[in-house]
């Protein structure tokens, strides 16, 4: 009885999640009347705007990951090493982006860095791109920080650092050669989440008027019938690929740990 009930609940849950997905995919394949085809996908992939916005977002995602890594790894390391009493404070700060809506952040940016401010970042394309990257880094901060902090928890940061110091290593060497390799897997899983966030982000890119993938998705959705669903499927595949990669990487760590 209980067994049957749990199967029923599982099937219900699966239906709840999978049915809309199937509908979406089915619809994205029915651009040609009366038969399934990849016409919508061909149209999307052939659209120069798709390629442009997609590669722009990929580029931004990579930059955000590098920036986030440079910001978070040393911070988390330093907090663990020297300022353990500040950990609750830092954790709270890194959680703020979950509480403050992106639109508030981006309006704050626009007010602070407009062309008549002391730092007119929105006045140039480069500046606006930079601002967008900072915004993305903020959005991914909760995930990145937690991933790295958890990674640091698995190693004896203090002793490894002291050992490296006594062997003649400076801070850059310690971070680059000792700490980073040990938390690389954690950083990678943080990086994939960041990638997924950046690829789908709409608010910031739209309000800063940058040609990112998120606003393009929205634009297509408002103007085309089949293509948005093809796009949604593509975006969905990207997200799942990222999650799959996280799984894969985590499995590698487990393997590594078992050997340790």
């Amino acid at each position: 009885m209980t067994r049957a009930a749990s199967w029923a609940i599982l099937l219900l849950g699966l239906t709840y999640f999978i049915l809309p997905l199937l509908g979406m995919i089915e619809f994205s394949l029915s651009m040609r009347r009366g038969e399934y085809s990849f016409d919508a996908y061909v149209a999307v992939l052939g659209d120069p705007q798709f390629r442009q916005t997609f590669s722009y977002s990929v580029m931004m995602a990579l930059l955000t990951i590098v920036f986030g890594m440079l910001l978070v790894v040393p911070t988390a390391f330093w907090v663990r090493l020297k300022l353990p009493h500040l950990r609750p404070v830092i954790e709270f700060i890194t959680l703020l982006p979950l509480v403050i809506p992106a639109i508030v952040v981006v309006f704050g940016y626009i007010r602070l860095y407009n062309t008549s401010s002391w730092l007119p970042l929105t006045g140039s394309v480069l500046g606006t791109n930079l601002l967008l990257m900072f915004g993305y880094a903020t959005l991914s901060l909760p995930y990145m920080y937690r991933a790295v902090d958890t990674g640091l928890r698995t190693i004896d940061v203090t002793t490894l650092t002291e050992a490296a110091q006594s062997l003649g290593a400076g801070w850059i060497t310690i971070l680059g050669r000792i700490i980073l390799p040990n938390v690389l897997v954690a950083v990678l899983s943080g990086a994939f989440v960041t990638f997924a966030i950046v690829m789908g982000e709409f608010t910031m890119a739209a309000l800063l008027n940058r040609p990112a993938f998120g606003p393009y998705l929205q634009l297509m959705g408002a103007n085309k019938a089949y293509e948005p669903f093809a796009l949604a499927t593509i975006a969905f595949i990207i997200t799942w690929a990222c999650m799959g990669l996280i799984q894969l990487v985590t499995r590698f760590t487990k393997h590594d740990k078992a050997a340790r």
């Binding site: 002291e162 050992a163 003649g168 050669r177 390799p181 040990n182 690389l184 340790r260």
Partner: peptide, 27 residues
């Protein structure tokens, strides 16, 4: 510490888990 010309051996060994034994020694 790095300029004191000392070498320390720790109770917990403090070996670098991601490096091979040879790399640990030559670090």
């Amino acid at each position: 510490p790095k300029d004191r010309n000392i070498a320390m051996v720790f109770q917990s060994y403090a070996l670098y888990p991601t490096m091979s034994v040879a790399k640990n020694i030559t670090f």
